[in-house]
Structure formats: structure tokens, C-alpha cells
């Protein structure tokens, strides 16, 4: 039984510290992203000293006026500009899929 639980812990530890990083290209620059509290941010961003994580809280709660989203605009991109006062930048993943990010003045990124 002890061995079973040990294996279970090791398995979960492996999953928790597994390779769940994603790299996006911004021109020649490549940035590594990880998840913190369900949000994808650049890897050096770990707590709310980083603007991306601080602003992520605003992101979920702040509503947008319907007029802000007219025409099928990406809601996260609009919130980035209007609510979080960040700047939208588009990156490409390894398969060249586009993804917009919100970039902040401390060079942190929020997906």
C-alpha cells in the first residue's frame, strides 16, 4: 500500500512538473510561456509582481460594453487595450497558428 501511494505521489509530481511550456515567436524573438493559476504568462512571471498576472484578475471580472465587441472582435484583445491598458501583439506557435497576447510595460505577456 505504501508503495502504491509513493508511486501515486511520484506520478502526480511528474505531471505537475511535466513539460507544459509553450513557445511563441514574435519576429526573431522567442518567448517561453507557462501557466500560473490557469493563465498563460511568460515564464519569468510567477506572482503579482508581474503586471501580466496582476492584470489577469481584472481580465476575468471586467465587462465590456457590447459596442466594444461589435464585428466579432476577439474579446481578449479588446480587454487588453481597454481594460488592462496593455498592447496587443500577435505571436506564432510552432505550427504558425496566430495568437494574440497582451503585452505590458514590464515586458510581461498574458495570453
Amino acid at each position: 500500500m505504501k508503495k502504491f501511494f509513493l508511486m501515486l505521489i511520484l506520478f502526480n509530481a511528474n505531471v505537475a512538473f511535466g513539460k507544459n511550456f509553450v513557445i511563441y515567436s514574435f519576429g526573431e524573438l522567442k518567448v517561453v510561456f507557462h501557466q500560473v493559476n490557469g493563465e498563460w504568462v511568460n515564464k519569468s512571471c510567477r506572482d503579482e509582481n508581474c503586471l501580466a498576472l496582476k492584470m489577469a484578475r481584472l481580465f476575468k471580472d471586467a465587462p465590456l460594453a457590447p459596442s466594444d465587441l461589435m464585428g466579432g472582435k476577439n474579446p481578449r484583445a479588446i480587454k487588453c487595450k481597454l481594460v488592462m491598458k496593455g498592447k496587443v501583439i500577435i505571436g506564432l506557435d510552432k505550427n504558425r497558428n496566430q495568437q494574440s497576447f497582451c503585452k505590458f510595460s514590464d515586458d510581461s505577456f498574458l495570453k
Partner: peptide
């Protein structure tokens, strides 16, 4: 390749 129209109304 997935698009992201971000703030454009080009859907």
C-alpha cells in the same frame, strides 16, 4: 493555421 483577428472586425 488558426487566425487571430484581435481588434479587427474582419471575421
Amino acid at each position: 493555421e488558426i487566425h487571430d483577428q484581435d481588434g479587427l472586425n474582419t471575421c
